[in-house]
Structure formats: structure tokens, C-alpha cells
Amino acid sequence: MTLLTDTPKLHHVGVIQPDMEAAEAYMALFNHAEDYRGYVPAFECWCIFLKAPAGQAAVELVVPTGGPLMKFNRGAGGLHHYAFETPDLAGLQAEFATRDVRMLEPEPVQGAGNFLCNFLHPVSTRGVIVEYVQPLGPEKDA
């Protein structure tokens, strides 16, 4: 049985912002409101999730503090990735491995909210950055 559904649910779209000031300006521009935020050491970034209608995909503002994300689009930031939900990220990672597709981290990492996450390696997607998210609780199960 595959974990790769043909109707994947979009969890969020990630947009890199060069710094917090730019992130706040972006939110103000669109009258966005912050839902929650968290720091993800594995990816060296703050992740600010914006409020979205219940059950619908959110926008995530990613503010790097170091590492490769700082260099994305020559430091200017921009549209970076989209993320699908999965009920079993470790299982999905194992399934991808059988297809010669690997993920960036050897194990799922704790995300900015109540979820696990990991990215497909960009070599496997020919440069498209795709994340998978496994919600851990009902409060952020959107």
C-alpha cells in the first residue's frame, strides 16, 4: 500500500523572507495575521505560519538565520517550496527510498508547529523544493 495518494493535501506554501523586518512588511502588505511561529534548528530558520481558513493551506514565511536558505535567490528570498501532508512521514520516506528518491534529513524533524517535516532532496525533483508534513495533533491539523 502506498502513502503517495493521488489527491495530496496541500499543507502550506513557503516563502523566504530575508529578515524579520521584511517578513513583517510582507504581512502588513497583505493584512496577514500570524497564526504561530517556531524556530527549526535543522534548517536554521524561523517559520511564521499565517492564519488561513480552517482546513486550508497556509502561507509560511521562512526567515533564515544561517545555512543554505540565506543564499536562496541570492539572499533576496521569494517563493521557495510547497508542502503536502502525510499521515506517516517515516513510512513515506522509506517508500521514497525504494524509488531512489531521498530526503534532506535522515529522519523527520520537528517543525515549527505541532508537526514533523522533511524535504525531498532537490536532486530528486530536479530543483523543485517539496516538503512533507506529518501533523501530530488536531490543533494544527490544517
Binding site: 543554505p68 536562496f72 531512489d100 528518491v101 532532496h121 532537490p122 536532486v123 530528486s124 530543483g127 523544493i129
Partner: peptide, 23 residues
């Protein structure tokens, strides 16, 4: 970086009409 590396490889593939495996 890792992303521009992939772009470079794709450009090379398209230029020469060849394919590289992930490995």
C-alpha cells in the same frame, strides 16, 4: 549551492541531450 547545482546539471543535460541519474 545545492539548488544551483541542480540547475547547472539540467542545463548541461539539455545542452547535450544527455541524462544524469540522481546518484
Amino acid at each position: 549551492d545545492s539548488l544551483s547545482h541542480v540547475r547547472l546539471i539540467i542545463a548541461i543535460e539539455r545542452h547535450y541531450g544527455i541524462k544524469f541519474s540522481n546518484a
